[in-house]
Amino acid sequence: MVGVEEVRHLAHLARIGMKEEELRLYTEQINEILTYFNMLDELDIGNDIEPYRMSREYKAMRDDIPVAFSAGNALSNAKNVKGRFIKAPKMG
């Protein structure tokens, strides 16, 4: 079971601001859903089954040929800019 404090930590990891009543509601719903997910516990599959994953030959990967982006201004969707820089909050 997940408590409110654990959900608060999850919200921090995901950087989603939440009010107390939201935290309480999510705690309840997350617990309900996780309880459902817990049925995976009863699935007794060891190492005989590999987790599903797509694979490809390395030769199918892209050639090392540079093509600069020229179809428009890459910064056109940025609203906080200073000169050619994008403004972001300061760390620390």
Binding site: A14, R15, G17, M18, K87, P89, K90, M91
Partner: peptide, 15 residues
């Protein structure tokens, strides 16, 4: 972003 602590900025935007 001016003067906003980065964790708060992200959390606020992403709410």
């Amino acid at each position: 972003p001016d003067g906003v602590a980065w964790n708060e900025f992200y959390s606020k935007i992403r709410s």
